Amino acid sequence: MTTIGVEEEYLLLDPVTGLPVPLGDKVLATAGLGHLVADHEVQCELLQAQVEVATPVCGTLEEVGGHLLRLRHAVGAAAETHGCRIAACATPPLRHGRPVAVTDQARYRAMLTQAPQLVAEQLVNGMHVHVGVPSRETALQVLNRIRVWLPALTALSANSPLWDGHDTGFASWRTVIFSRWPVSGMPPHFADIADHDRRVQRLLDCGLISDTGQLYWQARLSARYPTIEVRCLDVQLRADDAVMLTGLVRALVQTALAESTAGAPELHCEQELLQGSMWHAARHGLSGTLVDPGGRQRRAGEMLYELLRHVAPALDASGDSRQVTALVHRLLQSGTGADRQRDALAQGGLPAVTDLILAQSTTP
């Protein structure tokens, strides 16, 4: 069984005003005291209005879902003791006029010096899926093969339409914000692992990044674990949507592994086309068209059907087909997190958006 692990980032919001509150250290300390949380499962983030959780290594989607609910409830309970709530949304509907405090760690202080305005606007939350691979060379081959599908995953996960109290017009504003760092966006194609390592080392030697953690590509080889890490996803309002995306990501990796072993040719797509496709996915989510791996515009529903068809053998092999397919169909009917936030905004304004986010963040 191909192993998986998930990291989620949450905002800490005042339940009355809906504004981010800088209580990360306090919530982290309180969550760490509970019997439901193991060491290193809850961590600080760049800004003090955020926390991050990480599941253990899992073998099944049921394990992933159970751990995510456990961690959401544990961190949620810790937040409530300090008068705030966790919010599994990728951007805050509202922000203060002043920046949120940066977590007091050397790496984060250096980032603040390097790019103060970018750090001030880094109130964005993602979901990162780690999938186990046999080797770094294999991970590189997988990365080359899955990059063409990353825009579709971003569209499916879109959950950040609001910023500073208004609709940005984008389904995933987080994707736009994160694309402003020096090394970000769609990962390039690499000839082999030596080519990858040489190019990363040049970025380090030139001072364009201070460490490999600043490789903010939408997917990358993990520097800490024997995994490939898919990072193009907005954090999800509902834990079961996170489970669905985890299943799709694992199936994509398994499909890429099988294709590589069989010597199947890679789908070739130019870097500029992929970059534009990602922008298009962030802009429209599932409300319009997506650009397929061949560079053609397709209706979002057709593109998702193609994605499901592509990974169907892997989903069947892992026993995830029924669960993932059902959750994808439910999302197509109820809308992405971005769609649901916009519906709430239209019906009840920003208070209704806050209520929606806080209610769904700790429910299955």
Results as ranks from 00 to 15, higher is better:
Q333N: 05
T175W: 05
A258M: 06
A344H: 12
G5I: 03
H96G: 03
I146W: 02
A262L: 10
E137L: 02
H310P: 00
L331G: 00
T81V: 13
T55Y: 12
V57G: 00
M1Y: 09
T289M: 02
G247R: 07
V102A: 11
P313E: 10
G59R: 14
L304K: 06
G97H: 01
G97L: 10
L248W: 05
F170K: 00
Q236Y: 07
I4Y: 01
H284L: 15
F178E: 07
D339H: 14
D292F: 05
V53I: 15
R180F: 09
R202D: 10
H82K: 08
L308V: 09
R322P: 00
G288H: 11
G348H: 05
L13V: 02
R220C: 11
H310S: 01
V42P: 03
H329P: 00
G294E: 13
H96K: 01
A194V: 12
V311T: 08
W217N: 04
V328A: 03
A158W: 02
R296G: 01
M303C: 12
L36D: 15
L36R: 14
V253G: 02
H128W: 12
G165A: 01
N159A: 07
D339P: 03
P92K: 06
Q201A: 15
I193L: 15
S277K: 05
P182M: 11
G66F: 10
A77D: 14
D192M: 08
V42G: 07
R224E: 12
R95C: 12
L140D: 00
L47P: 08
S179I: 04
D205P: 03
P265G: 13
Q347W: 00
L273N: 02
L33E: 15
M111E: 13
L153K: 01
R330K: 13
S184F: 09
G301S: 11
D292K: 01
E63F: 12
R107N: 07
R95D: 03
Y305M: 07
T138C: 12
P134M: 04
L252K: 06
Q275I: 07
A338F: 04
D14A: 06
Q271K: 00
T168M: 08
L358Q: 05
V57K: 01
N144C: 11
P20A: 08
L140I: 15
T246N: 03
R342M: 12
A106M: 09
A359C: 02
C84E: 07
A101Y: 01
G18L: 07
E41L: 04
T255A: 12
G34K: 11
E52Q: 13
H67I: 02
H166S: 09
W181F: 15
P351Y: 03
T103D: 00
F170I: 01
I193F: 09
Q201C: 06
E80A: 15
R95E: 10
P188A: 10
G276N: 08
A346T: 14
A359G: 00
C206H: 13
A251S: 08
G319Q: 04
L156E: 06
S210R: 15
M186I: 15
